[in-house]
Write a protein that binds this DNA or RNA. Structure first.
Length: 217
DNA sequence: AAACTGATCTTCT
DNA sequence: GAAGATCAGTTTG
């Protein structure tokens, strides 16, 4: 995937609107990506790879087009798409998405009701897709997932489809979320989203303000 | 609506 | 031994 090899900062806005499908045990969940963050390896204080390669982040240093999944806060998994060329550590964190297929399976895994929050947030997104232990390093297959047909077993796999070739006009950027220290400052506005997506937190925050005409106490 | 807190454990210093 | 690319529930204003 040419686009991914050019690095996370290049690829991140192009992944908005793309779909990621995960099939396992005959269950298929597809998410349309709505919010991402770029992490650019050893020059990026916010990246897991800032202090070099370790056992945990080894996948980031491999070739583009693989999943980098990591465990954090003692209970959550998050998923990245590895970018760049081998030897560099570049990845795009998937921060939010809209579940477009397999809502029932996603709801079951999340233990939550369907809605904008089903895959909003990196850990929620990973959980909705069923990504976790054992998925780090998984290769991404190109194109849409095979369609589910009666009597034909669905092979396990992860598919990435619909990566843009040009950034969509109006794409918004901002500081990364949850990144402390220098990596979180405005020096790295490497978070990308499209306006008007209910699964993206800035939209929720804006929409949550007092509605026009509402009287405040 | 914002702020705070508990949960829970791997990873690296 | 401390911090962490988080989330959900509760408390406070």
């Amino acid at each position: 995937m040419q686009t991914l090899e050019r690095g996370a900062l290049h690829a991140a806005p192009l992944l908005l609107g793309a779909t990621l499908s995960v099939a396992r045990s005959g269950q298929l969940v597809t998410v349309r990506i709505t919010e991402v963050e770029a992490y650019e390896g050893e020059r990026d204080p916010g990246s897991h790879a800032y202090r070099g390669q370790t056992a945990r982040n080894a996948t980031m240093f491999g070739p583009a087009g693989h999943l980098y999944c990591y465990f954090t806060y003692g209970m959550h998994w998050c998923a990245n798409i590895v970018c760049g060329t081998p030897g560099t550590s570049s990845a795009v964190l998937l921060r939010a998405g809209e579940v477009t297929a397999g809502v029932d399976a996603a709801v079951g895994r999340r233990g939550a009701l369907p809605g904008p929050k089903l895959a909003s947030g990196p850990a929620r997104l990973a959980q909705a897709l069923g990504l976790g232990a054992g998925d780090d390093g998984t290769v991404l297959l190109s194109g849409p997932a095979p369609s589910v047909t009666e009597g034909v077993p669905l092979p396990d796999g992860v598919w990435l489809s619909g990566v843009r070739s040009r950034r969509r006009p109006g794409t918004l950027t901002g500081p990364r979320t949850g990144v402390s220290g220098a990596g979180g400052s405005g020096e790295f506005p490497w978070r990308f989203w499209h306006p008007g997506e209910p699964s993206v937190s800035p939209y929720r925050a804006a929409a949550a303000r007092r509605r026009p005409g509402t009287v405040q106490s």
